[in-house]
Each structure stands twice: as C-alpha cells, then as structure tokens.
Design a protein around this nucleic acid. Structure first.
Length: 347
DNA sequence: AATGCGGGGCG
DNA sequence: CGCCCAGCATT
C-alpha cells in the first residue's frame, strides 16, 4: 500500500485550517511548534495569535523584556518554554540573524529538541526528516501493531526508523503535517473512528482488535511518600538498638533502627509519646534530640522516604542493645548506612 | 534511565 | 480520577 499517498489524500480532505499552515516563515513555524509542545491546538491557538501580533519578527522577540514574554505566556504552562524561546531568539539574533535552516542547526536552539527541529526543518525548508510526536507514535503503533513501549530508547529508535521509511521524500512537509493531523482527528487516543478509517484493512491493531491497547507506554510507578522517624538509641556504654526487617517487604532481612511511621514531620512530644519509642526506651530516663531538622530524602523506584533520625541518650543500659562496632557489621539499607557513617564518623 | 515541568479536556 | 496533549532539559 502507498501509505503516504493515502495519508495525504485523507489530509487534503480533512485538515483543519490553522494559521501556521499558511506560512513557510520559519520564525512563525517555530513559534507555533514551541507553543504546541504538549499542548492541544485549541489551547495554543490564541497564544500563537498574540505572539505573532506582539512579536512579528524574531528581533522583536529577542528585544522584548523577559517579564513581558512570560506575561504573554501566562496560563499556558511549562514556562521554561517561554524562557527558552527568548534565549533562542537571542541566539539567532546574535548569530547575524540567520535563522537556522536545517535539522542539525535547529537542534542547537534552546528548547528545540528532536521533534521541533524536524517539524521546522520539514515545514519551512522541506528537509526530508520525519516528525515523531505523540500522534505519530499512536498512528504507527496501531497501523503496524507495534507494542514496543514508546517511552523507552528502543521504542523511540524503532518508531523513528519506521517514520523515516514511510516518509514521502518528495513532500516531507505535507506528509508530516498529514500524519499528525490524522492522529489528532481520526486515530485519536480514545474512541478512534476506525469504521471510517482509510487504513482499516491494513491496520494491524484494527484487524487484531488491539487498538485500545496501543500505543504501549510504560507508566512510571507513582511514587508514594513515606515518613520514617528513626529512633537511634545511645546507651551509657555506647550501644545502640537495631531491628531486623521481616522478609515480606522492601529491605527484607536488612537491619535498621526502630522507627515510627508518620504522615509528616513530628514534634518531639509526639515521638516520645509513641508506642514504638516507649517500647525501645522502656523505663529509662533519656534525653532526645532530632539529628536532622530537615528530612533526608531517600528515593526508591516507587517510594520517597522522608527520614528523620531522633538521637536518644538513655541513662540505663538496654537489654537488646549492641555495640556500634557490631551494628556496622550488620546488613543495612543505603539510607541507614549513610546515616551511620555520618553520625559515627566511620568509613 | 528518570524526573520535573502546567494547564486543560475527555471518558 | 487517570490519561493525554505537535516535548525538552537536566541529572
């Protein structure tokens, strides 16, 4: 099948009228592409209009006060885009006002990555480079039934290679516009209109009924915050208390200081009043102080632990305490290891 | 390889 | 509520 030909045919009939499609001015195209990064057309449209109107040339943008640019960007989100936009405008103006006219040089601009460089290079300069944005991942993964995750390097590579192969070398600009528009209007994330799709006979996902499963995207495990208040005992003879974790969860079998699990920071009165603390210290007199006022942040793949270490000097020896030297022999987590080394000054 | 960075629309 | 949107920079 001649994919590109059919795609462009579809595009000619179905495309929306959008202002940045009526120009080959690289500056305008660049503006539109940056505005549309992770942003829907409908949301970006008014911002594009006001930027073009306020800064009709790259020199005007370069000369504008940063606050003014940010003000104009207000409400659009991802504000580093606005700062990078202006930084790049300055780059261009200082570079003798020669707007970069190819993919490789465009990539040097602040805020211009692989997608945006390819978009400007093809739309404004007809360079033969494929755009690979969220739409393209979706369209290609479905059409070819590719389940490689789109957000891992292997997937990025695979889809870019496929997009390169499919790209219409004579009309890269129209082809690139068309495939994105197709993803935005027809091959949508939810409820794509497969019944009227010109590719339904060739679409692997449609034939195999996996449209709703594609593209595959690795979801980052959402990180849960935990607050651990560790009780670090010091007996008169310099011993401390450590417990071994059970085998059913993280850090299984490793040793650690007894700790209170809380929903945030604690007052020392709350620590002292807690059952875990009472259990550890027993009836002995004590003086407590927090080692770190600010939590030590320890990140795991799916946990973010806010650790507070409470140092508790007790006046009596405790049954289960061990010498610090012995404590250092025990297997512990990196979090505990780092604290111990700092606190007891061992290497 | 992971994370932070926004605001809005949709099912 | 979770997902996604014409992604990029930084670590």
């Amino acid at each position: 099948m001649n994919f590109s030909r059919q795609l462009v045919d579809w595009y000619i009939v179905n495309k929306r009228v959008l202002p940045w499609r009526d120009t080959e001015n690289p500056y305008f195209i660049w503006l539109s592409e940056v505005i549309l990064q992770q942003t829907r057309v409908q949301q970006g449209l008014p911002y594009y209009q006001s930027f073009v109107k306020t800064y009709p040339t790259v020199e005007k943008l370069a000369a504008a006060p940063q606050d003014e640019v940010l003000k104009l960007w207000q409400g659009l989100g991802y504000y580093s885009r606005a700062r990078n936009l202006q930084a790049a405008a300055l780059q261009i103006v200082e570079d003798d006002l020669k707007f970069p006219d190819n993919y490789k040089d465009l990539l040097r601009l602040k805020g211009v990555g692989d997608y945006t460089a390819a978009a400007i290079a093809s739309f404004a300069f007809h360079e033969v480079v494929p755009v690979v944005d969220g739409n393209v991942y979706r369209v290609l993964s479905r059409l070819y039934g590719i389940s490689t995750p789109i957000n891992v390097p292997a997937g990025v590579k695979q889809f870019k290679e496929l997009a390169t192969k499919l790209l219409n070398k004579k009309e890269p600009a129209t082809h690139n516009q068309a495939i994105m528009e197709f993803g935005a209007l027809q091959c949508t994330p939810k409820n794509p209109d497969c019944s009227s799709c010109p590719f339904k006979l060739d679409c692997v996902a449609f034939q195999e009924d996996t449209v709703r499963d594609l593209p595959v995207k690795l979801k980052k495990a959402k990180v849960k915050s935990l607050y651990h208040h560790y009780v670090v005992v010091q007996t008169p003879s310099g011993k401390t208390i450590m417990n071994q974790r059970d085998n059913s969860n993280i850090w299984a079998g490793l040793f650690e200081f007894p700790y209170i699990e809380a929903n945030g920071s604690l007052l020392s009165s709350e620590v002292i009043g807690h059952d875990v603390f009472k259990e550890v210290v027993g009836k002995s007199r004590f003086r407590e102080s927090v080692y770190n006022q600010q939590p030590i942040i320890h990140k795991l793949s799916h946990r973010k632990i806010h650790a507070y270490f409470w140092v508790v000097k007790v006046e009596e020896e405790l049954e289960t305490a061990v010498l610090v030297e012995e404590a250092f022999q025990k297997p512990v987590s990196v979090l505990i290891e780092r604290f111990m080394k700092k606190f007891w000054q061992r290497n």
